[in-house]
Write a protein that binds this DNA or RNA. Structure first.
Length: 470
RNA sequence: GCCCGGGUGACAGAGCGGCUAACGUGACCGACUGCAGAUCGGUUUUUUGGGGGUUCGACUCCCUCCCCGGGCACCA
């Protein structure tokens, strides 16, 4: 079965067939690094990180580019506030973005392409658009003439005439029509500029994406991702620019859009000032819990963020991690030599969970459903664990968690080996066991309580005591 | 006003033209335990926003109304 993806361009589920065999060219709208990354950004980037990981798992060779908008109004304004240059600000916040996202397990991007490093490509595209009659120069700026591109609106399903009422289009006497958008903005005092055939200036918002994408992918490519809020005008304008320039359609075969993160029913955003920085979130929750929270919803669904929902994610995720730790513990303490029917059951469950995981992910990357199979699997594993399993079965289970965990970006902590604290803990556990044998529960409980205070949980099981970091 | 989503149990949230409406969280009961924890088994509430239509059969498809969110030239 092939992968099915929901394409915003057609508003339908489609079979995923890349343009060039095994190669998948994927572009996702990156950040404008003028401020801290918040959970809303994370939702989108974690979604596409997971999608890239799954495509690679399925054998595709994915070339994943994220652009970095390191010149724009936000950066210029922020620079005026803080006195730092646009370049300094961009570097600082991009670095923080990478730190935050790395903490959340984003590591699938092949290339971060800076807008300012692609000015020649941008200029070349604009020249091409002027030559073809889709763009015009006016007082040092260049605008795309939307009315010339008859298919404008096909991605967002907008009709140009009906967009005008209520629209807050910037008034600009340099434009021929209010809906025209800037490809090149003429120099303004105090702003960073580059040379161009139209004098000094800087790129408009939409052009960097098409210039960068074409520089690396050619005139058409497979996947363009971003949040739904970007469909109009940003992605619509990209389609117009690219297809007007090359005449090749479609510019992008599959448009994928993530639902936004809401807070109390409203979009998390800087302008509403209801955002939660990734850094702040990381102070309260394990990175894995945050990632679990984000992938435990379908990427297209909007997600409402509340304390309750995050707490629920924490509980649920810990249950899965607990299972992984149960298996590791069993591997250490009580792996059996002889196979029993329990082993057959577990082996079957492993095959089943892998198959169902793929089915769910094939269905438009349905991570939510994939995770539901993981819960069912965990229940089966835990049940079988009490009866004992062979080393082979236990390792098979771990491998399933590792494989699925690698795609979803989870379970890194639960699966990796514990550190040198092991020896020390062994000693403490032994001492406590002695006390328990002597029914000296005062001492045994004190050891456990003190450990609990430093975040180590000690549990007595029928196969002996075990400990874990909270 | 226009375009796009969505309305399902206490909460969160999938799926499917007919099968017990998944999975999770919460609550409760039981097993296990010196206690705790983890785990397992079980219970818990939904005729799927209102109305109409298509169909032998609709939560699922169509129409209409109501409500919520996103976009309408800032934005992940």
């Amino acid at each position: 079965m092939a992968i099915q993806v929901y394409n915003t361009l057609t508003r339908k589920m489609e079979e995923f067939e890349p343009l060039h065999g095994n190669r998948v060219n994927m572009f996702v709208c990156g950040v404008t690094p003028y401020d801290y990354t918040h959970l809303g950004h994370a939702k989108t980037y974690i979604a596409f990180d997971t999608i890239a990981k799954y495509l690679r798992y399925r054998g595709y060779s994915v070339f994943y580019i994220q652009n970095v908008t390191d010149v724009d109004d936000h950066l210029i304004n922020r620079s005026k506030e803080t006195g730092e240059s646009e370049a300094e600000l961009a570097e600082k916040f991009f670095k923080l973005f990478i730190e935050d996202m790395t903490a959340l397990g984003m590591d699938s991007v092949n290339l971060y392409a800076y807008a300012t490093e692609h000015v020649p490509e941008i200029v070349e595209q604009i020249e091409g658009l002027i030559k073809k009659g889709y763009a015009y120069e006016s007082n040092g700026s260049v605008y795309f003439e939307v009315g010339k591109f008859s298919e404008f609106g096909k991605l967002s399903k907008q009709v140009l005439e009906k967009l005008r009422p209520g629209a807050r289009v910037e008034v600009d006497e340099n434009k021929r029509n209010p809906e025209d958008f800037a490809l090149w903005k003429a120099e303004k005092p105090g702003e960073p500029t580059w040379d161009s055939p139209w004098g000094k200036g800087r790129p408009g918002w939409h052009i960097e994406d098409t210039a960068i994408a074409m520089a690396y992918f050619g005139e058409q490519y497979d996947i363009h991702g971003g949040a739904t809020e970007l469909i109009f005008p940003h992605h619509e304008s990209e389609v117009a620019q690219a297809e007007a320039l090359t005449g090749k359609k479609p510019f992008v075969k599959y448009w994928l859009h993530t639902g936004v993160l809401n807070v109390k029913g409203e979009k998390m955003s800087k302008s509403l000032n209801n955002f939660w920085r990734v850094q702040e979130a990381l102070e309260e929750y394990e990175p894995d819990v945050l990632r679990f929270f984000l992938v435990n919803a379908h990427y297209r669904s909007p997600v409402d963020y509340t304390d309750e929902v995050l707490e629920e994610a924490k509980q649920g995720y810990e249950r899965l991690v607990e299972t992984v730790q149960n298996v590791r513990f069993a591997l250490k303490m009580q792996a059996k030599d002889e196979r029993t029917s329990e082993d057959d059951e577990v082996d079957k469950a492993v095959k089943e969970v892998m198959q169902k995981f793929e089915e769910s992910m094939d269905n438009d990357f349905n991570t939510r459903e994939a995770i539901s199979h993981l819960f069912t699997f965990s229940t089966k594993v835990n049940a079988a664990l009490s009866k004992g399993l062979t080393r082979e079965s236990l390792e098979g289970v771990l491998k399933a968690y590792r494989t699925i965990g690698d795609v979803l970006g989870l379970f890194k902590k639960g699966i990796e080996k514990e550190d040198v604290v092991d020896g020390l803990m062994e000693f403490l556990v032994e001492m406590r066991e002695k006390a328990r044998e002597e029914k000296n529960f005062e001492v045994s409980d004190e050891i456990r309580d003190r450990l609990a205070k430093i975040g180590i949980l000690l549990e007595d099981t029928k196969d002996g005591p075990r400990w874990k970091k909270r």
